[in-house]
Write a protein that binds this DNA or RNA. Structure first.
Lengths: 212, 212
DNA sequence: TTCTGTGAAATAGTTCACAGCG
DNA sequence: CGCTGTGAACTATTTCACAGAA
């Protein structure tokens, strides 16, 4: 959409002014668009704001930048080659959207060396080397819950700074590490709530986050 | 709403720490919400605290549990017995938290009849029967994206009202159906945003956050 | 004092109607 | 005609700010 560059300029101005959030009204005034149009444009990119607050300036800048083609690839590694890890290793939705799975790691030496989805399973001891080799910045943890903390510590030591965690454990990590839990039971709890209420439900793609 | 499970977790932690009461401020910090939002959420459930003191931990846990329907089991079925479906079928995190997987469905007749994780794969044509047999209220869609809509329609026709969708497709469904997409690429995108900015991220399990 | 409960304000998300265009 | 984009209007949600109970 041709309005994106205009939004981007307005957002960069707001950022320079130190504004953390902007309203659709604010963006509309700076770009000559209608506030409703701004909201719809952002919504069409999957960008969501907070009612009563507005849009997160830095986040929207980031999203528009990637939308304008500056999207680079983000290699990802998967730790844990059990059922789930294998399933994720050839999950199309990842590579097709700029997150190619570049390595598989396990602690079980009987799995090391196996060829899965075109990748050779490597041992956890080699983690640092693997991370450097593939230039991974993010990792997916798909191990049993009791190993989760140890794996997470190893990942951090190896230089990984973003973690997608399937173990439903509350990981204790340094503040500069970004973690997103993927917790199906919690998702189902939310669904059960809505079902009991018969009311509609959100898209679930919440935004940003909080502390660590 | 989606914040209830996050509150619940924070409350269980507080309970484990021996706290008899919590303030809305405390809950807010642990879940990334605003204190006023916490108070309004609880008030909307008819939960009332004590001014100057806070909320009774055990009472709120009890109330949220019943609100989420966690007192009883919620049978779940999985549609799509590919890698992902198989992985999820013995995912401990589901049954251990009240969401036992009670049936596996596929459209591929060569898979029908197979025994996986102690369940016999059934054909999509039998969906209505299966749903009735196991008393399922929720379903997980783990099929290729192009079949997602058709499967969702079949689920709705069979009486399912809550859907967890792994296909990253935007499903078109009646308003009374609750859907939660599980979209790893979007999760990674959010992580990459935080990593780029070096700022910290939330513990997750929670929802949205500070001003988004 | 501390901390809940809530009215008021801000602002996103959604729906409706219409205009322009194939 | 039907589709697409847009503005206006409406609804829902979040946060602020403050009154007032314990």
């Amino acid at each position: 959409m041709g309005r994106l560059p205009a939004y981007l300029r307005a957002l960069l101005d707001a950022d320079a002014d130190g504004d953390a959030t902007v309203s659709s009204e604010h963006l509309a005034q700076r770009t000559g668009a209608n506030p409703a149009t701004v909201r719809r444009d952002l919504a069409s990119l999957g960008i969501t704001g907070t009612r009563g607050v507005g849009y997160d300036v830095k986040y929207v800048v980031f999203r528009i930048n990637s939308e304008l083609g500056l999207s680079s690839e983000w290699p990802v590694i998967i730790v844990g080659v059990g059922n789930l890890g294998r399933a994720l290793s050839n999950y199309r939705g990842l590579s097709s959207r700029g997150f190619p799975v570049k390595a598989l790691i396990d602690i079980d030496r009987s799995l090391v060396g196996l060829e899965i989805s075109g990748l050779t399973v490597r041992h956890l001891d080699e983690l640092s080397d693997v991370v450097d080799e593939v230039g991974a910045a993010a990792a997916i943890i798909a191990v049993p819950p009791d190993s989760a903390q140890a794996v997470a510590d190893a990942l951090v030591a190896a230089g990984i700074r973003s973690i997608l965690d399937f173990t439903a454990s509350s990981l204790d990590l340094p503040a500069h590490i970004a973690v997103r839990p993927v917790d199906l039971a919690t998702e189902l709890q939310i669904l059960s709530f809505y079902q009991q209420r018969g009311s509609a439900v959100g898209d679930g793609h919440g935004m940003p986050l909080e502390h660590a």
